[in-house]
């Protein structure tokens, strides 16, 4: 895995796009079909954390009509496949974002919308805003810009669908499950020990 030396979109995306980072294309036929369906139908939990939230509603309108691609908004995290974190994310919001993410069912993907989710953007020196979303939740797709236009968001969706369909990169939720200690430690740096809910406990339930 290449070292992530600098903070910034270009480097971050390089990491995600790197050949070494991506898994080898070894889908079975069944898995291919499964992935095709997953790419074809996406339920979005649009968590309007920051100013990027204003860029999300237009994509559902008649001008951009993202429903063509099979992307639909849902109200509850239980049914959602995709979490859009739209812009800067304060500590208080992050707690809710993590809670929502952990209530989503696998497979689940995170889209980071706007520069703030990459390196803090204009909030780079804020005392109560996270700088890199990837330290707390595994991001599958970054969309750069401040603000990115709805076209950019649509392109992000298309690219994510392509990633899922062809299994180009390891999905974030698998990383979250396997490297949970890392994410957990980062989350605890902000919230302390008494963070609710704890992923291990949720995850332990899976084996029952």
């Amino acid at each position: 895995m290449p070292e992530n030396t600098q903070e910034g979109f270009i480097d971050q995306q390089k990491v995600l796009d790197n050949e070494e980072y991506s898994i080898k294309n070894t889908q079975s036929i069944i898995q291919k079909a499964v992935d095709w369906f997953r790419a074809r139908s996406m339920f979005v939990l649009a968590y309007g954390t920051g100013c990027g939230a204003i860029e999300m509603p237009p994509i559902f309108t008649s001008r951009y009509d993202i429903e063509r691609l099979g992307v639909v908004g849902v109200a509850t995290p239980r049914q959602a496949d995709i979490l859009i974190v739209s812009g800067y994310c304060s500590y208080k919001t992050l707690k809710r974002v993590i809670r929502s993410y952990e209530q989503m069912n696998e497979p689940k993907y995170v889209i980071g919308l706007g520069s703030c989710t990459i390196n803090g953007g204009m909030y780079w020196d804020s005392y109560n805003t996270i700088k890199k979303l990837d330290e707390y939740l595994p991001v599958d797709m970054y969309i750069n810009g401040c603000m990115p236009r709805p076209e950019a968001l649509i392109e992000g969706f298309v690219k994510l669908q392509d990633n899922i369909r062809n299994a180009k990169s390891e999905a974030g939720y698998i990383q979250y499950r396997e490297n949970n200690a890392f994410y957990r430690a980062n989350q605890e740096k902000i919230f302390g020990k008494n963070t609710t809910p704890t992923f291990e406990e949720n995850f332990a339930g899976m084996n029952q």
């Binding site: 968590y47 209530q103 069912n105 339930g205």
Partner: peptide
Amino acid sequence: AVKVRDRYDISYCGET
């Protein structure tokens, strides 16, 4: 089917 952790693990607008 994954059993929830406790009775209060419900979707409640992100709140706990």
